[in-house]
């Protein structure tokens, strides 16, 4: 069974067809060609697939497509296209190595910065995002620079 789902993606209306249970991640990476959002574990444990849903960071690998009908989805492409200040600061701090985790972290951190959250709160929220290369301290330094 396929369902047609309409939602806003980085501020633009999109329509996508897919099985209702299909995670949003596969619609983003597939038909919508937004591949910045990455498949890590597929179980909501690592945060590599983090997007925003009505401004709240969620893991798109376990958010069913049917759940986003009529809602606003934000991805890393939107953060970069809007020239969010965290992007340039992350790069200046060389806040990453392989970068597989970075789109999810950037999406969450930029969103929380824009909502006026403090560094400690953002750091606590990032405990749901795994980084294996060990770039955490640089990422937090970049966030602190932009958030303050």
């Amino acid at each position: 069974m396929m369902q047609t789902v309409e939602f806003s993606l980085n501020g633009k209306a999109v329509t996508v067809q897919g099985p209702p249970a299909m995670p949003l991640l596969f619609a983003l990476r597939g038909a919508l060609a937004h591949k910045g959002t990455r498949l890590g574990c597929g179980e909501g444990h690592c945060g590599a697939c983090t997007v925003t849903l009505d401004g709240v960071p969620v893991t798109s690998c376990n958010t069913p497509l049917s759940a986003v009908e009529g809602r606003a989805v934000g991805t890393v492409e939107g953060i970069v296209a809007a020239d969010h200040p965290l992007v340039a600061v992350l790069i200046r701090h060389q806040a990453g190595q392989c970068g597989y985790c970075l789109p999810g972290i950037l999406t969450k951190a930029a969103t929380l910065i824009d909502q006026g959250r403090g560094v400690d709160e953002i750091c606590a929220a990032l405990d749901e995002n795994l980084c294996r290369c060990g770039a955490h301290a640089r990422i937090l330094a970049a966030i602190a620079e932009v958030a303050s």
Partner: peptide, 20 residues
């Protein structure tokens, strides 16, 4: 000298990694 990593910006978006 610490020149910026030439690949880091590309790693923030789709298209750079084999996964994409």
């Amino acid at each position: 000298t610490s020149v910026p990593r030439v690949d880091l910006e590309a790693r923030l978006l789709g298209g750079y990694l084999l996964h994409d």
